[in-house]
Amino acid sequence: MKALILSGGHGTRLRPLTYSQQKQLIPVANKPVLFYAIEDVIEAGIHEIGIIVGPNAEQVKETVLSEDWDADIEFIYQGDPKGLAHAILVARDYLGDDDFVMYLGDNILREGIVEHLRHFKDGDFDASILLQEVPNPQQFGVAELSEDGKTIKRLVEKPKVPPSNLALVGIYFFKPVIHEAVRNIKPSWRNELEITDAIQWLIDNGYRVGWTKVTGWWKDTGKPGDLLDANRLILDDIQTEIQVETKARIHGRVVIEKGTEIDEKTVIKGPVVIGKNVVIRNSYIGPYTSIGDNVVIENTEVEDSIILPDSEIRDAGRIVESLIGRGAKILRGSSHPSGRKFVLGDMSRVLL
């Protein structure tokens, strides 16, 4: 069995960060979102992985190949994203006649895919999709189940009157018949080949489409708020691991990596993850904060935020619920801050 992980697209909802980096490479808890998908696939016993790349292909390749994965990884260029079903068309030669899982690279699934894959195989389905109950099904693709609840009867995209509250999660299992399906659908009103249309083609032509329900949390990290949500959820599961000596006051679960310097005037209240070669002086690092490698923070309070590598934050007052890009600088804070929120692109500079 193979895996097809999607890491293309322009990431318009995450601009300005995605002007300079691929959205699936933005870190959550100091790990690129894309890596969570790769780890899930390998955990499920799949060791042949094709990664769909687009505008920032070289950036994705360099980042993925910086790690030693227990898998053979190939990169497949899609060009302009024309829908999820189009990605399958582009990967046709790579996929051959193997079963495969298609995993959207900006999704994070707490429980992984092991049990979902087992259901697909044991049920001998032609396709199987992951579903999760949501309070706002009008904003998602929604599944209508068969009377016995075992298979999918119909898929509806963003319905005004949803037939259920079961939204499609961006992970799909397919047998090779999906290649026939994607060849037989037409572009939607968005001028894209929709994967929901391809699955509906399978249903309409008598093929069996199964489903499994996500029991843990799932996040589509397509917007800044979603990234911060995912960061909180992942940090909730960390265990303390401090690889340096420091006299800082540390409370709760905290990870601090090698080479980092934190002075005795700093307070850290977990859950917090701090990367390598970070310098923190006379600051407060509050819960649900991730700080990337080579960051400098001085005379500042940071809470519930993601700080990407190589950033510099000095005298910036209190920063909350923020997403700070690589190499960004925030300098000269006022003495009586009321709390500031940022989404800063890479190499930004803010004077306060």
Rank of each mutant, 00 (worst) to 15 (best):
I49S: 03
I49N: 03
I49V: 14
G50F: 10
G50V: 12
I51K: 13
I51M: 14
I52S: 13
V53E: 07
V53N: 06
V53K: 12
G54M: 10
P55Q: 11
P55S: 10
N56E: 10
A57L: 05
E58S: 12
E58D: 15
E58V: 09
E58C: 02
Q59K: 14
Q59G: 09
Q59I: 02
Q59E: 13
Q59C: 00
Q59W: 01
Q59V: 02
E62L: 06
T63Y: 00
V64Y: 06
L65D: 04
S66G: 06
S66V: 02
E67A: 03
E67I: 00
E67L: 00
D68F: 02
D68G: 04
D68C: 10
D68Q: 14
W69D: 12
W69S: 10
D70N: 15
D70R: 13
D72G: 12
D72L: 10
I73W: 08
I73M: 13
I73N: 12
I73R: 12
E74T: 14
I76H: 01
Y77F: 08
Q78R: 01
Q78G: 10
Q78S: 15
G79P: 08
G79H: 04
P81R: 00
G83P: 07
L84N: 05
A85G: 07
A85W: 11
H86V: 00
H86I: 00
H86A: 05
H86E: 11
A87C: 13
I88P: 07
I88D: 05
L89E: 09
L89G: 03
V90A: 04
A91D: 08
A91R: 12
R92M: 00
R92W: 00
R92A: 03
R92S: 07
R92C: 00
D93W: 01
D93P: 01
Y94N: 03
Y94V: 01
L95G: 06
L95R: 06
L95E: 02
G96S: 07
D98H: 15
D98F: 13
D98G: 03
D98W: 07
D99W: 09
D99A: 14
F100I: 05
V101M: 11
V101P: 12
V101C: 07
M102K: 05
M102V: 02
M102T: 05
Y103H: 12
Y103S: 11
Y103I: 10
L104I: 07
G105Y: 03
D106F: 01
D106G: 07
N107V: 11
N107W: 01
N107H: 00
I108H: 04
I108F: 02
I108K: 05
I108R: 05
I108V: 15
I108P: 06
L109C: 09
L109K: 04
R110T: 02
R110Y: 11
E111F: 02
E111C: 07
G112W: 10
G112R: 11
I113D: 11
V114Y: 09
V114M: 14
V114L: 15
E115Y: 06
H116T: 08
H116G: 09
H116I: 03
